[in-house]
């Protein structure tokens, strides 16, 4: 079972936002989508969540066209974490998290899951606070708890067929929380959930992803193992970086890859790259 995009093209106002992008998210994948501003990362995500129909190409969830699937059915398998969520009226943190169960209509019976999710995201102590009064990072952690609770049954039944899409969502979290959140996300991936995260921070991507999709002006520059981030020539193309800076970033990313759970033997891999 996979979530796959086949030859997606999106045109808005005569401009190509995405051209011929294909990818596949399988069970347990940790895919980071990277690229400069305006590379089409968020548009790709909108297509994968069925917010936007691509002009060409299709998105398939378990072989079924996403736009033909009933919305509730989709929401039970595919949880999406947006960049930021502002609330028009002050719900409390535990109420926001409970909303994650709306596709399942079992907010009351799953209180223990909601509690675990809040503890996992370190917002349990904030549960009675009004969401609108929280800091940006706390809001993001609350939203993450809501998103995780939407597919929480994965932790018990295995995550096969469930997907988690994250959209540059930890920009406001502090470094400690950024990494702890990504570790939690990795646990979900370990349980079989396919994760795709649009990311801004190369270091975070290098320390977390097992594969990276690099976009530039709506086209795929490369789609492969996370090691791509340690190759200066690729970073130079993707981000239009001057050579020296690209070298620095690549070296930096190599360093961050030590922490990557996908790295069974980081030392050997590193040596291979530094002598290459």
């Amino acid at each position: 079972m996979t979530l796959s995009a086949k030859h997606l093209s999106v045109r808005l106002g005569g401009r190509h936002i995405l051209s011929d992008v294909s990818l596949e998210v399988s069970s347990g994948d940790r895919i980071a989508v990277l690229g400069a501003n305006g590379a089409g990362k968020s548009t790709l995500l909108s297509c994968l969540t069925n917010e936007l129909r691509a002009d060409q190409g299709d998105v398939l969830l378990a072989g079924q066209a996403l736009h033909r699937m009933p919305a509730t059915e989709r929401a039970r398998r595919l949880a999406v974490m947006p960049q930021s969520v502002t609330l028009s009226f002050p719900l409390r943190v535990h109420e926001v998290v409970a909303l994650g169960r709306s596709p399942h209509m079992d907010e009351v019976r799953t209180r223990h899951w909601q509690q675990e999710a809040m503890q996992l995201m370190d917002v349990w102590h904030l549960r009675g606070r009004e969401y609108t009064g929280l800091s940006g990072g706390e809001q993001q952690r609350t939203q993450m708890a809501r998103v995780l609770v939407q597919i929480w049954s994965c932790r018990e039944k295995g995550g096969e067929g469930h997907y988690l899409l994250l959209d540059e969502c930890f920009s406001a979290a502090d470094p400690a929380h950024q990494h702890s959140i990504m570790n939690r996300v990795s646990e979900f991936a370990g349980a079989g959930v396919g994760v795709l995260a649009v990311m801004h921070d190369m270091a975070l991507a290098a320390s977390w992803a097992d594969r990276v999709l690099l976009l530039k002006q709506g086209e795929v520059v490369a789609f492969g193992p996370v090691e791509l981030l340690t190759m200066p020539q690729i970073l130079q193309v993707v981000y239009d970086l001057p050579g020296l800076l690209a070298n620095d970033y690549a070296r930096n990313n190599r360093h961050w890859m030590i922490r990557n759970p996908a790295n069974p033997a980081p030392a050997e891999r590193l040596r291979e790259y530094s002598y290459a």
Binding site: T49, N50, E51, A71, T72, E73, R74, A75, R76, L78, A79, V80, P82, V85, T86, L87, S88, F89, L91, V96, L99, G100, S102, P103, M105, Q150
Partner: peptide
């Protein structure tokens, strides 16, 4: 009531939660 609650977080999120 459920839809209205979800829409407190915006139409985008309500869509993600599976509401038409």
């Amino acid at each position: 009531a459920r839809v209205l609650n979800a829409m407190l977080m915006g139409e985008q999120v309500a869509g993600h939660l599976g509401f038409p």
